[in-house]
């Protein structure tokens, strides 16, 4: 509010804002809070809440993320430049991640010939559990290990993952073109990827 000029109308506007804010304070805060189960102790979302598509020109650049994968290999997002990349924030402890895993695994295999790559970012996970998850769901694509959420933090000024799972679609020029909060479904994700990559769905 500091950038607004100081006039009486601002004070009134602020008062109205405060009143509106308070009037609705009975609800649970914003979008994010709605995605966070109260007593779960960890934040994840149950089902897909929303997908957002960013028009060309409004797409934030994806941060230069790199690190070690769950299997111990180095990985840098830069090496995928020129390809459409599906970034999936997940955790083996997260129930909706488990429910969306088969769809992601299938799509990763189907879209491989089209030049679409999948990269996971494993959040707050224990390595043995993450490996078990990948083996169990037959996840063929690599996942960066992010136990302290440093990778998620690098998305802070772009499109931060507000919940787990969050799926971002990065276009071939390295810009974030779409986002899905919550478990994505096969058709929803396929359509969005096709839209970003310019494929026929």
């Amino acid at each position: 509010m500091s950038r607004l000029p100081v006039t009486a109308s601002i004070a009134i506007g602020a008062a109205v804002t405060a009143l509106v804010g308070l009037a609705t304070a009975g609800c649970d805060g914003g979008q994010i809070a709605a995605n966070v189960p109260q007593s779960s102790g960890q934040s994840f979302v149950g089902h897909s809440y929303q997908s957002t598509f960013y028009q060309v020109g409004q797409r934030p650049a994806v941060p230069a993320v790199s690190g070690t994968t769950v299997t111990g290999k180095p990985l840098s997002l830069d090496s995928y430049r020129g390809k459409t990349v599906v970034l999936n924030f997940w955790g083996s402890w997260c129930d909706p991640c488990r429910s969306e895993a088969p769809a992601l695994g299938t799509l990763a295999r189907q879209l491989q010939p089209e030049g679409v790559r999948f990269v996971g970012i494993d959040i707050r996970d224990e390595r043995a559990a993450a490996l078990a998850f990948m083996q169990n769901f037959n996840v063929s694509y690599p996942s960066l290990n992010d136990p302290n959420d440093q990778i998620a933090l690098e998305f802070h000024s772009t499109v931060p993952p507000a919940a787990i799972p969050t799926t971002l679609i990065v276009d071939s020029s390295g810009r974030i073109a779409a986002r899905i909060f919550g478990a994505s479904t096969y058709s929803q994700l396929k359509d969005l990827v096709a839209k970003v990559a310019g494929l026929k769905s």
């Binding site: 805060g29 966070v36 960890q42 959420d149 802070h156 507000a162």
Partner: peptide
């Protein structure tokens, strides 16, 4: 970040 907080209550 929201993903790394157990309970998050934003305004």
């Amino acid at each position: 970040t929201p993903t790394d907080l157990d309970v998050f209550r934003p305004g």
